[in-house]
Design a protein around this nucleic acid. Structure first.
Lengths: 190, 190, 190, 190
DNA sequence: TATGAATGAGTGTTCATTCAT
DNA sequence: GATGAATGAACACTCATTCAT
């Protein structure tokens, strides 16, 4: 991968995230990447190809993080890590995730890219096993519930500037996956 | 509002939801609404004006539903109704909500329409009072948590075809806002 | 001529003068004249018809002024009056003349309206006779020269905001058609 | 400047002069210049940009002629050259001047191009010095008078097909800036 | 007489994509 | 590999004009 290629990729990700995929002309990408417009098509075939390359590159980076979690054995730690996942991922590369969410609802046929469904599937399984190991009555429902909450959490993180750190701690306490310091008022919940 | 105007509005909502706002040409709207393209601009000024008209019309219908909930006094019923809200709203007009979510991430400046932030704000307050009345230790956090879950729930309902009825029941049981039938195994959770 | 018709005519003249004929939409005329757009077409057939009505109405008013001059017998007074003509006409209805000049170069096929060529022809003849009566060697050339100067004068009056009063006086002195007061320095010219 | 660019420029000048700026669609320019419509916008940004390019190109050519005059020292020759200017300029590029005059009255905001005001300003100064050097009592008025006549002369040349050669000779004799042949009757005027 | 909803041809402009160099 | 001139199919939008009421 030449430096020009990298350049195109990172500029395009930034612009797609800021302005949207369709609203970003290839001419603007070329200009801001200091590259001729033709080069984009030489390397990525067409505009969709460019988007796919960005998505694949991003998912590669995501996998390195989720794989870590999947290796974890302690069920409480699994749950805690998964609760931490949205904030970790989004803080690491907000542009990629903003684009990801935008595409999800954009009805662009390109969204037929595998998405991140594989990773999600694996995380769901890990979460199920964790809830099961901890003796939850309905580990499947608990899994679904928490995963959907995290989906919402990601969504809110991306569309507002709210500080969600304390909420995340609250959730961990709720699931009893964090050591509660004595001076913390969070003792009995629900 | 003439019948042609109604026609334009409903066709546009359908197409915007299916294909996205920017990806839908006004020419297509005109053709499918059996109307000249110029008429769209005569009535709504420009394409953004058409979108805004659709959004306002939809929010009007949303308000009639949320207003009902805000009149409810029993805290358990408030919570139950709010949990039911996503499925109620989305089943009633899935196209409107698909469009709403798409716009949220589309970076289109048009999304500066107040959104449904007013309704959400009011529902949050009602939820807070309900949790407070029921003696929850951290009603603010509980509110935030549940609202974000519901955000995720809506998102999932729109992007997949999963059946979420049983999950919703599970959540209601979790919050103890539904009469649990004897043969139901859901008694103690978490 | 109903009051609505008058209204359309005067609003259209104003707008045509300010923005140009082609650049002024009939919709704007209708709105500013508090009249439905259809009415314009009912009365004047089409947009060109409206322009022609404006032009004819204006030329009627012009003729009443030029006819006065044509009745004058004293050659010096004829010349003086004709020199005064541009400023008199333009100060009286600047909008009409701005429109007239704009049309002259606009290549709009409508410019084939007789223009004011009749009046100009008659004024030229009167000027010729005046110069002839005063013993000018080349009354035809003098006439052409002065008429063209007045054309330029009109043009400059319309396109700039220069004060041309003193120049006009200078021209009258040049042609010896005004009583020069003793304290005036303009005694010998050229 | 590629040959296609030149092509666009010359075709556009011709059409703008013949039909007017607003009345000439870019599609027609493209067709007659054997060029895709998009190319016009690639090179000149928008239709106004095309007009500006035409105007600047024309003014460049004008300056080479006026600069010649400004180098002249003999006051009589200065006056004679300036009297000759309209016919020289307009015969050289009638289309450019027809366009220039059309724009002057068109109320198009594009006319804010400096116009040829610089050149005119300089010519006025040269004329003033010439009249001054020749001992005219009111060189400023004489300058204004002649400049305005020339404005009218240009206007008439563009809007009619009259032959103005003999009038121009008459004017030069009037200002005593041309050698009068013996058989010419024009000796003393006014 | 007067309205205003409706039309449809056209206008300037954008943009992904191609291709000769 | 890399450029940038060139294309052509769209696109949002305008506007004179018609017509039922």
């Amino acid at each position: 991968m030449t430096s020009k290629q990298e350049n195109i990729l990172s500029v395009a990700l930034k612009l797609f995230a800021e302005q949207g995929f369709t609203a970003t002309p290839t001419s603007q990408i070329a200009k801001e990447a200091n590259v001729s417009e033709g080069l984009i098509f030489r390397h990525f075939g067409n505009k969709d190809g460019l988007l796919i390359a960005i998505l694949e590159q991003g998912q590669e980076r995501v996998r390195t993080i989720t794989d870590d979690i999947l290796r974890e054995k302690d069920p409480r730690k699994v749950i805690a890590h998964i609760i931490d996942l949205p904030i970790r991922l989004i803080e690491q590369e907000p542009e990629f995730w903003r684009l990801q969410f935008a595409l999800k609802y954009s009805q662009t046929p390109v969204l037929s890219t595998k998405h991140d469904s594989d990773s999600i599937e694996n995380l769901s399984k890990a979460l199920y096993h964790a809830f099961d190991a901890l003796g939850y009555d309905y580990p499947d429902k608990e899994t679904e519930f928490l995963m959907i909450f995290l989906e919402g959490l990601s969504s809110v993180m991306l569309s507002t500037h709210r500080d969600l750190k304390s909420l995340i701690r609250f959730v961990k306490v709720k699931y009893d996956v964090v050591r509660v310091s004595d001076n913390s008022p969070a003792k009995k919940l629900m």
